[in-house]
Design a protein around this nucleic acid. Sequence first.
DNA 1: ACAAAAGTGTTCACGGTACACCCATGA
DNA 2: TCATGGGTGTACCGTGAACACTTTTGT
Lengths: 242, 242
Amino acid sequence: MKPPNTLANKSLADFKVGVDNVIFSVDTQLNRLLVLLIKRREEPFSNYWSLPGTLVRNGESLETAAYRILAEKISVNNLYLEQLYTFGSPEGDSPAAAESFGKRYLSVSYFALVRFEEAKLITERDYNITWYMIDKVPDLAFNHGQILAYGWRRLRNKVEYSPVAFEVLPELFTLNDLYQFYETILGKNFSDYSNFRNRLLKLGFLKDMGLKVSRGAGRPASLYRFDEKAFAPFKDQPLVFV
Amino acid sequence: MKPPNTLANKSLADFKVGVDNVIFSVDTQLNRLLVLLIKRREEPFSNYWSLPGTLVRNGESLETAAYRILAEKISVNNLYLEQLYTFGSPEGDSPAAAESFGKRYLSVSYFALVRFEEAKLITERDYNITWYMIDKVPDLAFNHGQILAYGWRRLRNKVEYSPVAFEVLPELFTLNDLYQFYETILGKNFSDYSNFRNRLLKLGFLKDMGLKVSRGAGRPASLYRFDEKAFAPFKDQPLVFV
DNA sequence: ACAAAAGTGTTCACGGTACACCCATGA
DNA sequence: TCATGGGTGTACCGTGAACACTTTTGT
């Protein structure tokens, strides 16, 4: 990043910076991977669905803006958030770009995973807001389809070698809960269930709490907790899960 | 990315956008991993070393700006380039930020790998420019130390599961060249040499050209070519190399 | 003939895969 | 007592790690 060069400044572009979030959640009951979409009520792309986004305000960092979007749309306590990618074609993709001469828009996208069960949607006037099943998402406004695809890929990768799952699962969970979680993100039969069990238990960062929970018929399941300290050696090591 | 909302625009931040490049190259002769640094001659951080960067101009995309930096500093034909991360703390990290009231700077960083042998440095008036050995890099201007660390991590990851090496190695290379390349990036003894050979050859995307090259004493080595088509099945598959 | 570098082969142990099987509970 | 889901055990195969060995050149 260079300091302003007063001589050459004339040709430099001025930007407004937008932040767009790809917010995922996993409905473990119905085995559904969901993404949060908002129906636009303004031109351009009026009546199209879009990713929740905002423009960055004075005194606000990118990440703060990303959290603000979240807070404005849903209320959650448990979440994971990271930066995805920055899109910035010259003279934006929107027809409105022409009228705002010399103003460019740049979009920094973030990827978030939230706990579905506790996420309450905040409905605003003029906005429709919904969890969309990932495989039912329609054409989106702007380049949001591209961003979503990118975020989805990142989610799948992330889940394989990082313990994001535990940021979003309840404190105590059964091994089956965990398996379901991976299954809905990575697809059915991503791994044999019993091998999944054995591998994870052998790694030793899942602590058996000695509690049982019974869900309808069948033998009751043990509840486990994720032990952050015991996981430490597996940081930066590929393919821990799956 | 939202369209301009004329009512609320007052509180929105205006940005200049900088692009900073982490440009790596591998000196296979001396087994050195190098990064391109530039000595600043202006405040702030005058006389500090920094990553090559620029501010984005009107009508220029982020990626174009990244390529422009490269073209201004070195001349290369073979390179790999991808976006790294976007930094954008409010009211920048530089002392100069205060004087430019209301202007914010945002830095989009790119990561590049170029072929060392063909990269010619373009010396400019007022600038010192050098290839620095990665483990000898001094404190850098702004947050460039952080960006470099980030880029270095990305380089190591990238190299393990993607064929970037072949973007930067000569058309024809020996298996030892390839091994050296990985060794200087991932560290000595990242793998047993003969196992490295066997694994890569078994995968079948290295074609033996039937040519031999002799380098001083010892048995002459076969020259290989990277076969892009034969590599296709290994796309999106983790840990092909190493 | 010897050193140096390229290339081949062999052994061993571990870990993933695919199953079959046992256990505890509700209905 | 049967169905349902939880949990354990085992046999096999592939593959990676370690290392010894052979081949071809320069000097």
